[in-house]
Design a protein around this nucleic acid. Structure first.
Lengths: 344, 344
DNA sequence: AAGAGCGATGAGAGCGCTTCCACGACATTT
DNA sequence: AAATGTCGTGGAAGCGCTCTCATCGCTCTT
C-alpha cells in the first residue's frame, strides 16, 4: 500500500486515524464531525479532541465524492472586458461575496467567461455541476447566457436584473428606476426646468430603468421629457453626448447622467463651454463609487452599494443551497440613495 | 426554449458508461481520456465518440481523490482593503491569471485573507492542500504571511518581490529600481536640476526600490538626492507631500512620484500654487494604469504591465506544478517602460 | 522455431469520506 | 411479563476515478 515515496505531500491525517485515536468507528467520527447529531457526548468529545491533536481537516474531494456536493460556488463574470474589471463596482462585488462566504466553508471559484468562446467553457463547467451554485454578476447584456444558465437548473442568483427571463430567475438589484427618479427630482427641486439625461447603453436594464425613472419624475412635474442623448457609461461618451446636447438644446439647465463617469465627461464639456456648475447647469450622476468625490465640482450622485448587493445575493444563494425543495425565485430590490455634493 | 429539467440533480454520465458504450474497460477509457498513451487508435476513437455522445465530463472530486491533486490553484490576496481592490493593478492581475489558466483545466479559487483573522483561514486552506499551488498577489507588506506560506511547501509564486525570504521564494516583479532610474533620468534629460521624489510606503519593496532607482540616477548625474517626501500611494498623500515639498524646497523643478495617484495629487497642488507643468516643475508618475492619460496635463509615467506579470507568474506556477522534482526558486524580472506624455 | 520484448488491455485495489442498515442496550408502553 | 421504541454504534457499501499489475497477443531476435 505504501504511498508513493517520492510524494512531497506530507500525508495528512484521515478520518480513520481520527476515529482510531478517539476509539470509535469511522462512522461515528464522521457523525461527530458533521454536526454531531446521534452521537453520545463522550464520543463527540473524544473525536473533537482527536481532531485537534491530529490537526485533521476533512478531505474535500472525498467528501464531495460521497455527498455529491462540491462546497464551492462560482462567481460568473460574463465578458470580462476591461471596463467591467476596472469598474469599482466589480471590486465591491467581490468583496461583498467574499465576506458573505466567509462564515460558510464554501469556496469561491472565479469564472471569467472569455469573450472568445461565447462562454462555452463556463457553461460546461456549470452544467457539469462542478459548483453547487453560481452568482452571475452584472449581466445586463443580452448575450444568451441568461437562458442557458437558467436552463441548467443550478441554483443561481443574478446581480442586477437580467434582461430576459426575469420572472424565473432570482436576482438582486438596486431600484434603478427609483434612482433615476430621485436624481431627477433633485434637479427639479433646485429649480431646473429643462432637464436632459445622458443614458447608458440601451441594452442594459440598469440604463433603461434609470431612463424610465427620469421620465417618471419629469412627467410627474409636468416637464418635458424629450431631451435624451445616448451614452455608454464611459467618460468619453458623456462628453460627446453633452456636446451634442448643448448643440441641440442650448437652454438645458439640468443633466442627469446615468453614470458618474459620463457625468465627469459632462462636467468637463460644460466647463469648457463656459457653463457654471451648478448655477447654469446642474448635474447629477449615478454610482458614487469613488470618482464622484474627486470631480470638480464634486458630483451629486446616486449611491448604490455593490457590497450590499453582493451580500444579499450571496445570502439568497445560500438559502437556495440549504433548502431541499426546488429553488424558489426571489427578487431583492435595494433602495438607492441621493448623495448631495456640489454639482446640483 | 427547452423545458427546464426539473430534476435537481441530473445524473451525469460516468466513466463506466462511457467505457460500456465504447466497448472497452474502464481502465482503457480512463487512459484514452487522459492523453491516450498506450491506447490503440481504435479504442481511442471509440472512447472519444462515446464521450461526445454522452456529453461526458470527468467528475472532478473523484479524480482528485484518486490522483491526490485538486486541479485548482489559489489566488491569494492578503489584506483586501479597499485600496488593493479598487486598484486597477488588481483587476489586471486577475485578468492575466485567468487568461493564463484558460488553456489548462485548472480552476481559480479566490482567497481573500480577511484582515480580521490574520489569514488563519487562508493558511489552513493552503496547508491542507486544498489547492495544488498558489499565487500571492502584491504582498509587499511584511505581515508574516510570507514565511508561513513558504513553510507550507506548497508551490507558490509571488507577484511582486516579497519583503522577506526573497531568496527561497519564486516571484515575478517589475524592476522597480530600474523604473525609478529611467523616470528620474527622463527628468534629468529635460533639464531638471533640483529633483524631488514622493515615495510610497516604506514597508513595500516596490516603494523602496523606486526610491533607490531615483537615487541611482541622481548620483550618477552628480545631482543632490536629499529631496525626499513620504507618501502612501494615494492622491491625498501626493498632494500633501507636494505641498510640504514646495514649502521646504521651493526651488524644485522636477518631481518623481512613485505612483500615478500621488502624481495626480502633485499636479493639482502645483497647479493651485501657480506652477506651470512641465515648464516650472516637471512631473513623472508610476504605473500607467488608466489614470495617467486623464490628468491635466497627461502624465508622463512608467508603465508596468500587471497582466504581463500575472501571466508570467502563472506560467512559473504551472511549471512548478508540472515538474516532479522539488520546486525550484525562480525570479522573473520584467522591464518597466517610460511613457512620455505632457507632464515631463 | 522458440524465447524475448513490447504494446494494448482489463481486473481490481484503493483514494477518504458519507450514509444506509442492522444490531445491541436500554427505557417505555401494554 | 413481553412487546415496542429510541438511541448510539459499527460494518460495509458505495461515490467515480486512477493506476498497478498480470495477461495476452503480437513482432522481433538468434
Amino acid at each position: 500500500m505504501t504511498a508513493r515515496s517520492s510524494t512531497p505531500v506530507a500525508d495528512m491525517p484521515t478520518l480513520d486515524k481520527v476515529a482510531a485515536l478517539a476509539g470509535v468507528s469511522r462512522a461515528t467520527a464522521s457523525r461527530a464531525i458533521n454536526g454531531g447529531s446521534r452521537v453520545s457526548p463522550e464520543a463527540l468529545a473524544a473525536v473533537e479532541q482527536a481532531v485537534r491533536t491530529l490537526g485533521y481537516t476533512p478531505n474535500r474531494a472525498a467528501r464531495s465524492l460521497a455527498t455529491r456536493r462540491t462546497d464551492s460556488v462560482a462567481l460568473v463574470v460574463p465578458e470580462p472586458n476591461e471596463r467591467v474589471f476596472t469598474d469599482p463596482f466589480f471590486s465591491d462585488w467581490l468583496r461583498g461575496v467574499s465576506a458573505a462566504l466567509d462564515s460558510t466553508d464554501l469556496q469561491l471559484v472565479l469564472l471569467l467567461a472569455r469573450p472568445g468562446d461565447e462562454g462555452a467553457r463556463t457553461m460546461r463547467y456549470l452544467r457539469n455541476r462542478h459548483v453547487d451554485g453560481a452568482l452571475v454578476i452584472s449581466h445586463h447584456r443580452d448575450d444568451g447566457l441568461t437562458e442557458e444558465i437558467a436552463d441548467t437548473g443550478l441554483p443561481v442568483v443574478f446581480g442586477g436584473r437580467p434582461w430576459s427571463d426575469a420572472e424565473r430567475i432570482s436576482y438582486v438589484d438596486v431600484d434603478n428606476r427609483e434612482g433615476g427618479r430621485i436624481a431627477t427630482q433633485a434637479l427639479i427641486e433646485r429649480g431646473c426646468r429643462r432637464i436632459a439625461t445622458v443614458t447608458g447603453p440601451a441594452d442594459m436594464t440598469a440604463a433603461a430603468d434609470r431612463l424610465a425613472g427620469w421620465r417618471d419624475a419629469l412627467r410627474r412635474a409636468g416637464l418635458e421629457d424629450d431631451c435624451v442623448v445616448q451614452g455608454d457609461f464611459t467618460v468619453e461618451s458623456g462628453a460627446r453626448a453633452t456636446a451634442e446636447l448643448l448643440e441641440s438644446h442650448p437652454g438645458v439647465d439640468g443633466i442627469f447622467a446615468a453614470s458618474d463617469l459620463m457625468a465627469t465627461g459632462a462636467l468637463s464639456v460644460l466647463t469648457a463651454r463656459g457653463r457654471r456648475i451648478p448655477e447654469d447647469v446642474a448635474v447629477v450622476g449615478y454610482d458614487d463609487l469613488g470618482v464622484a468625490e474627486r470631480t470638480d465640482p464634486p458630483l451629486t450622485t446616486i449611491r448604490q452599494s455593490a457590497t450590499e448587493m453582493a451580500r444579499k445575493a450571496t445570502e439568497l444563494l445560500l438559502e437556495q443551497l440549504s433548502r431541499e425543495t426546488s429553488p424558489s425565485v426571489k427578487h431583492e430590490i435595494l433602495s438607492p440613495q441621493l448623495i448631495r455634493r456640489a454639482s446640483a
